[in-house]
Design a protein around this nucleic acid. Structure first.
Length: 450
RNA sequence: GCGUCGAUGGUAGAGUGGUCAAUUACAACAGACUGUAAAUCUGUCGCCCUUCGGGCUACGUUGGUUCAAAUCCAACUCGGCGCA
């Protein structure tokens, strides 16, 4: 039985941090850099595992701890022999720690901030939403209906309404579903509102039950708009949680679900602050409990596009070179280039599959929205690449499937987007091997608009 | 032929004197989506002017009542149903 290991087979002659390697796991190897598709609830949405293996040619899958814990429950997954077995997937697997949900169900709740934030949006967006809602509910209330003497002057009424709409009907703020404490995080279930408490130890136990080859220490993903004081506080907590995660992982030993030893990655945080990222990389890189250290590192957090590259650089310069680095939740075209250039080995991202389900498709010239009316009469193939499953269908057909809400629309689109991204990363890998990374980057990004 | 009910924006279908250019849903047209609360969400959706705002034309047709009509009245046209 093969154990986890990582070997670097080539260092880029062009970009100092970029490298090519192989991650060995009990369930096969991952040739890096690699894009890891996300199957949150032990399914890549809309895609059969067999089709995924046949048409996407991906080396691994990542599932989510929080979601599988709630549904169907980690014990059920464990009885299947781990989530990979359960979903009939026989390649290498990852599970996320649940740390991202601390952010997405907490600070990010109802604010419109995601992994990649836009500074200017935060302020404006809420105001606009508020105004709309207030206006709407005013109309619904019909508060002048019973006033007989009102009937005097519509013009006046309109003026009145416009003038006052801001003060009417306070928008209900969406409440955070999480509470963070030193010991862990209290989550309210997204399904039934029930309370659940996650600690680093609990996360380790759940992930041992889920049985992925690679899993992550429990962390706190912070909002990019949190101030530095909070970022420091959260970072130190994440470090303490990482230590507890490692300790508990050692104590638990091999996964009872699979009978195999899993690889634990720590998650580097620190927001947009280079000094914090550097510190985090060093602390976690050196963390050691009776001779055992982390097998690799995830880089987490939510940040603006501008901050991403510098964060990656400083982080990867300070992490142990001989261990794999995973960029959590990132995966747009240009981000993949920046990530790999700055030392990332693996990525996971929901973007290809979510975009696909919403009718957005990757092409070499940028994303297209298959719902646009021009595609009703476009008889060119969905994908030019003959190795892509979508090659055999016309855009007009796919447009029809989406418009008529046929389920297979999502399937074809997902297979296409996954194929596109997975193969792009494979091509980037090849470009490093052949020492033409920058040339390749320029040719792809020069053409790709978005 | 008589009686009766009905005719509303691309469709379905609210509204039955003044918050009506007209609720809502669907369709249409755009946009968003980065460790998945996402097969989701947002915007536009009569015409014209540069947004706020303003102007014009509109609820089968024509005429009327009224300060005010999709809404009340009359006739007509078309349609459903019932009776001959």
């Amino acid at each position: 039985m093969k154990e986890f290991s990582f070997e670097i087979t080539k260092k880029s002659a062009e970009a100092p941090l970029a490298r090519v390697g192989i991650i060995h796991t009990p369930h096969g190897k991952i040739e890096t850099p690699a894009f890891i598709p996300v199957g949150t609830k032990a399914t890549i949405k809309s895609v059969l595992p067999e089709d995924f293996q046949k048409y996407v040619d991906s080396d691994a899958v990542l599932a989510n701890t929080y979601h599988l814990y709630l549904e169907p429950g980690n014990k059920i997954v464990k009885k299947h022999g781990g989530f990979a077995r359960m979903m009939n997937y026989n390649g290498p697997t990852f599970t996320d720690s649940g740390g991202f949900q601390v952010f997405s169900l907490g600070a990010a709740m109802g604010v419109g901030v995601s992994k990649i934030a836009k500074r200017e949006d935060l302020a404006n967006q809420n105001l606009e939403k508020n105004l709309e809602n207030k206006n709407k509910s005013f109309r619904l209330k019909k508060i002048f209906k019973n006033n007989k003497f009102f009937s005097i002057d519509i013009f006046f009424f309109k003026k009145y309404r416009l003038k006052n709409k801001i003060k009417l009907n306070k928008k209900k703020e969406e409440k955070s579903l999480v509470k963070i404490s030193e010991d862990g995080v209290e989550f309210r279930s997204i399904f039934d509102g029930g309370k659940h408490f996650f600690t680093p130890e609990k996360s380790m136990e759940i992930q041992h039950d889920l049985g992925a080859d690679i899993f992550f220490a429990f962390d706190e993903c912070t909002s990019p708009f949190a101030n530095k004081h909070y970022q420091i506080e959260a970072l130190e907590r994440t470090h303490r949680w990482a230590k507890r995660s490692l300790e508990h992982h050692i104590k638990l030993g091999e996964s009872e679900a699979t009978g195999e030893m899993q690889a634990l990655y720590a998650v580097v945080q620190g927001g947009i602050y280079e000094d914090l990222r550097k510190e985090s990389a060093k602390v976690l890189g050196e963390m050691n409990i009776s001779g055992k250290s982390f097998d690799g590192f995830g880089i987490g957090g939510s940040f603006t596009k501008e901050d991403m590259t510098k964060i990656l650089k400083v982080t990867n310069e300070n992490l142990p070179e001989n261990k794999p680095r995973h960029f959590l939740g990132i995966g747009e075209i240009e981000d993949l280039f920046y990530g790999i250039e700055n030392g990332i080995d693996t990525f996971d991202c929901v973007s290809p599959t979510r975009l696909a389900r919403n009718g957005s498709l990757y092409t070499k010239d940028g994303r297209i929205n298959i719902f646009n009316s021009k595609y009703k009469n476009d008889f060119s193939p969905v994908c030019d690449d003959e190795s892509c499953y979508a090659h055999r269908y016309t855009k007009a057909y796919l447009a029809h499937l989406f418009r008529s809400k046929e389920m297979i629309a999502a399937t074809i689109a997902s297979l296409h987007n996954l194929h596109f991204i997975v193969h792009l990363v494979k091509d980037i890998r090849q470009s490093i091997i052949e020492d033409r990374f920058f040339e390749f980057k320029k040719s792809v990004l020069g053409r790709y608009k978005n």
